[in-house]
Design a protein around this nucleic acid. Structure first.
Lengths: 336, 336
DNA sequence: CTGAAAGCGCTAACAC
DNA sequence: GTGTTAGCGCTTTCAG
């Protein structure tokens, strides 16, 4: 493995000059710089990142903490981070933390990222109190994408508004009895997204002068499968059943939609279904939803991190992301 | 940042002993080891990975090269790699290489992973000839997951057999005129998966004594959207149209399925549709497919890499992964 | 079983 | 502009 000293020797200069030349620093004459670059390429020299890290203390890699990588929101977000890192000389280190079930396979702790990354981008997830504490105490730029984490800046949509939008859309269509499929369970005390979405739903229902039907509240875990199961339970309800269902994610909504149709329901005539997210599959299936763009959110967060690392103090801050109700074919007026 | 020397001083031993104790190496008395571990924890000592890398030459991170992270196969595979790395003290560095369109945003080159990773896991994708060359010349364990890359060991399903299985299933159902939605285009010379799947289809058709209909061959890029578009083109064909369509991926098949139903077709009565992959959404939508498990494949590949790194020469080798035809509701006999 | 000391390959003052 | 010289924090012979 050719090192900086070999390049220096071959070019007839010192290692310090090679270092400057290669990193494009000033104080190197154009001539020598050219010569150094040439011999470096000729020798196939690539700086040792380990040595650079040790010497500078910078790793030039940003860490992404995610509970899942094989789900829509997270996949899109990770892609967004990478897009932004492209060509900027930064690496992306992925820390999969395991789902929100307990016991979690891997907990976050400061030591797991200690000196391994320059900044951290956290993808919305359930955190244990100790983890939040460790996170807040961490000595590097941090942004969370998706859901608010107490005490940490985040970029994401206004989940309350999103949930209200879906609910009000249904109410506007004439629905008076609306079921809810959300992703919250009792262990979610520190994962606020599901809770916030539920509040938006509740408030919209109440403000329309309608009643909440506790029997029409179903729980899922944001997967397609859980949507299927929820629909099965829904169909066991005695008639008259709710005429619409709002789901806390497109993946659950799609599961519910497929299952409803398989059981012979006509969506939207027998039942309106609406999701939240903007999943491609939802667009294909004609699902009404509140669209959001996790890739853009992640990109924005990464930009902030990079800016902060570049010395721009205060670059990292909370920001509300774009969202939009997209009415498609799974919602309509209730049967007369 | 507390370093090894502070621990050494506090424990009244040398840094060498601390190093041995912490890494669990022999030649340290139980007593001193216990003491060292205790003071290390007390001081909150975490070894500097940069220093360790420099000193040992090992990075303890494996690099994952992927063209996408927000698609089913790739998301699952990345999750699988991470699962396997969990708790083994290895990090996962993600290198997003950009899609297979030209010009590719980021090309692979040896220098981009130089000294940054110990081994590389490549997720099936289109590669340029120079990239393959660089890949093969690379001086570290390498495995590709998914599709064969010339000259590199891989774990993945037998794509030829998978394509044949879908086609023979349709033929067995009585279909005589079958459309094909594949993912190949002219730039795919080095990405063999689509081509192999097409061959399986062709061979199955020919061996059944049927004719290939060149007008019934559609091109997609493995996305849902491209499935929708392909179905739109399919529906422009003059009658009598093919009575079945085999798609090279579930994502395309689902797009085609949704679009067909939206246009009023009864699937499977008017048209049978089959995919390849085993996407959750396909299960929910009742899509017939050839199931495969990219997460398991990636896990297997990662195990091989880790074994090889652990000194087990020859641990990395090609392996055929499990697959299975899953007949669900989108295929049936053609209308009489 | 333990310690001293020489690196690992590069960067960063500081001289020249 | 360019070279010298210390480190960065850990690992690793090699003595003891």
């Amino acid at each position: 493995m050719v090192g900086i000293d070999e390049v220096a020797a071959a070019a007839g200069v010192s290692t310090a000059t090679v270092s400057r030349a290669i990193r494009g620093l000033p104080r190197v004459s154009p001539t020598t710089r050219a010569k150094i670059l040439a011999t470096a390429k000729e020798l196939g020299y690539v700086p040792s990142s380990a040595a650079t890290r040790l010497a500078t203390g910078k790793t030039h890699t940003i860490g992404v903490l995610a509970p899942y990588v094989d789900r829509w929101f997270f996949g899109k977000a990770i892609a967004g981070v990478d897009d932004e890192l492209h060509g900027k000389g930064y690496n992306l280190s992925l820390f999969h933390l395991g789902g929100r079930t307990e016991p979690r396979e891997r907990l976050f702790s400061r030591s797991m990222v200690h000196k391994q990354i320059d900044a951290i981008l956290l993808l919305c997830m359930y955190l244990h109190p100790e983890e939040i504490e460790d996170l807040q105490a961490i000595e590097m730029p941090l942004i969370v994408i998706g859901g608010p984490v107490p005490g940490c800046p985040n970029v994401g949509i206004d989940d309350y508004r999103a949930a209200r939008a879906t609910t009000e859309h249904l109410i506007g269509l004439g629905h008076r009895h609306i079921a809810l499929l959300h992703g919250q369970d009792d262990s979610d005390l520190n994962f606020s997204v599901p809770k916030i979405r539920v509040e938006g739903f509740h408030d919209a229902v109440h403000e329309a002068g309608l009643e909440l039907d506790p029997d029409a509240a179903f729980y899922g875990n944001f997967t397609v499968q859980s949507g299927i199961e929820a629909m099965a339970r829904f169909l066991e309800m005695p008639e008259p059943r709710p005429t619409a269902m709002v789901c806390a994610s497109d993946e659950m909504a799609l599961g519910a939609l497929f299952e409803a149709r398989r059981r012979g329901l006509n969506v939207p005539k027998d039942l309106s279904i609406v999701g939240i997210d903007g999943h491609e599959m939802g667009a294909a299936a004609g699902l009404t939803t509140v669209w959001q763009d996790p890739m853009a959110q992640a990109r924005r967060g990464t930009q902030m991190l990079l800016a902060e690392l570049a010395g721009e103090a205060g670059a990292v801050h909370s920001e509300i992301a774009e969202q939009r109700l997209v009415v498609r074919e799974t919602t309509g007026p209730p049967r007369a």
